[in-house]
Design a protein around this nucleic acid. Structure first.
Length: 506
RNA sequence: GCUCGUAUAGUGUAGUGGCCCAUCAUAAAGGACUCUCAUUCCUUUGACCCGGGUUCAAAUCCCGGUACGAGCACCA
């Protein structure tokens, strides 16, 4: 048609017949930041981050905090920090985590979580819903063993307990509560259907009995108070509803959990929150660290504590000098895709460099120090800038009264070099013959320290297995503990004390 | 085995039928600036898992394959 009529007449035709077709489509905006939260209403969004307090937070937990926290902030909503501490036997909670986790979450977020919920404080609510479930006949007390039920699940057959009537179930429930039953004797199941396609969903267990006499809950106020405890899927489902959670964003390992919980919500007549999932993240340089494994290794003395700089815990990263800003932008950049990914640490480091470089005062540290006598005339002291991009921050002064300097052994092999900010020197038989004060050629520039302005110092470098202590000459300074500094020509570090630095990254 | 999910440069990520010979970041290489191997800036390198189908048009939709991951705990 176009070739017959020509493009102009075709355009005219369209203008008359269907002008909307000629409208230039808006150039699509490239999305920035996190994906749009579906069905979100400003001011009405409620999200939660629900760790098991069986240890302090790890690098991976940071994702849950950052992503949920960012959405809460974006939508003027609320972030709930919930302790899912309903297991006293397999992964028992760590008492100190109840204090540490909120503190770390606040550090990471820059604000306090709006609500803190502790599952072990909420057992009566879960009991109430369990009773409702039994009374309304969409749950039952099952006395089969785990093995027996596994057979039923595989063969898609109802277990005999499924046909208990309501009275029988309530009676058995009473026996679970009063101690007639011991762990393994009975469990409360949700009636879904035994021929559901996905075997994971078939009459899933909601509450079980724990031996809290032998394994009391670590929180003193709870201790051995309860014998019957909800499992994650039940506890989490009920609590999300009670708290009015609107959006759940979590790992895709919990996808089947969503499906289980949706079936429960249908029974109760509730509607399930919107959900999003992220995939597994591995950091190239770290293997698999599990909280329980780290806990054992710390107890065995393999690591000095949860903040041992070799560990991927939040406190360790913080201790090493990774900023909350770096962690936030790192996780926000990864977003919420369901892909399983492996990320190199350099990505995190690059975010960290961005967040600290502009603030970090420059400092010198001479590894393998090699002393050189200065030959020739020179000033009594030299001053160099604290930060080259910020002259207003002042100068660092190096006294030269004893005419001797420290440079790195490696650098001492170079015949002609320039002492940074000072002068050109020629290395003759281990002495530094002073040449031009102005930079006269392209000879290598090295950092140095004078005898009077340096002290014996240590640079701690965490490796996978060990923490290496590099001894050397450290520029005398008065920066408070925790200050992030840039060691000239080496990298970034955190001030541990006046003579010790913790290497962060290069 | 059953079930669910995901596949875009080295690594991450954007992209929901025409704006895409594909975005941004990071990495690597080169360069500018700089009295740090820093910061900042510039340039270059480099990708739609495979095979079919639907369509005028497919990274995008459908089917099949392959790979990887997860769940099927009286753990969270």
């Amino acid at each position: 048609m176009a070739s017959d009529l020509g493009i102009d007449s075709l355009t005219t035709l369209l203008e008359n017949e269907a002008p909307h077709l000629l409208e230039k489509r808006e150039k699509k905006e490239r999305r920035e930041g996190l994906p749009l939260l579906k069905k979100a209403v400003k001011g009405k969004v409620v999200l939660r981050f629900a760790p098991n307090p069986n240890g302090p937070l790890s690098f991976g937990h940071a994702r849950g905090i950052v992503i949920n926290g960012s959405y809460a902030k974006e939508w003027d909503g609320e972030l709930i920090l919930r302790f899912d501490d309903t297991d006293t036997v397999v992964k028992p909670p760590l008492p100190s985590a109840y204090e540490q986790i909120p503190e770390e979450a606040e550090w990471l977020l820059g604000f306090k979580p709006h609500r803190i919920v502790i599952a072990s404080d909420r057992i009566p609510h879960y009991y109430e819903h369990a009773e409702q479930m039994l009374s309304r006949d969409f749950g039952y007390v099952c006395q089969c063993s785990g093995e027996e039920f596994k057979e039923f699940r595989i063969s898609k057959t109802n277990c005999p307990c499924r046909s208990n009537d309501v009275d029988k179930n309530l009676q058995l429930w009473g026996q679970m509560l009063d101690g007639t039953f011991v762990p393994g004797d009975a469990v409360v199941r949700v009636k879904t259907s035994m021929d559901l396609k996905n075997p994971a969903l078939r009459d899933w267990p909601a509450l079980r009995i724990q031996n809290t006499a032998e394994h009391p809950h670590p929180r003193k106020e709870i201790g051995s108070l309860y014998r019957v405890w909800p499992l994650l899927d039940f506890q989490s489902a009920v609590e999300d509803h009670l708290q009015g959670v609107t959006h759940i964003i979590r790992g895709k390992d919990l996808m089947d959990s969503t499906r289980k919980q949706t079936l429960l919500y249908e029974h109760f007549g509730w509607s399930y929150p919107e959900t999003m999932y992220w995939g597994r993240v591995k950091v190239h340089e770290w293997g698999g660290f599990s909280t329980s494994q780290m806990r054992r290794d710390i107890e065995d003395g393999k690591f000095s504590g949860w903040d041992d700089p070799r560990l991927p815990t939040l406190s360790a990263l913080r201790n090493r000098g990774i900023t909350n800003q770096a962690l936030r932008s790192f996780w926000e950049e990864l977003g919420v895709t369901q892909k399983d990914i492996s990320v190199p640490l350099s990505t995190l480091y690059s975010h960290n460099t961005k967040s600290i470089d502009d603030d970090a005062p420059r400092i010198s540290f001479v590894r393998n120090p090699h002393q050189m006598k200065l030959i020739g005339t020179h000033q009594d002291s030299i001053s160099v800038e604290v930060h080259p991009n910020h002259p207003e921050r002042g100068k660092r002064n190096f006294s030269l009264l004893t005419s001797s300097v420290w440079i790195e052994k490696e650098d001492s092999k170079i015949p002609e070099l320039r002492l940074k900010g000072f002068c050109d020197v020629k290395n003759v038989d281990g002495s530094a013959h002073i040449g031009s004060e102005e930079r006269s050629d392209r000879r290598p520039i090295v950092h140095w320290l004078s005898n009077e302005s340096s002290i014996d110092g240590v640079l701690l470098v965490p490796n996978a297995e060990t923490i290496e202590s590099l001894h050397g000459k450290l520029e005398s300074h008065q920066y408070p503990i925790g200050t992030m500094v840039q060691i000239e020509r080496i990298g970034y570090a955190r001030v541990v004390d006046s003579s010790t630095l913790m290497f962060t990254h290069s």
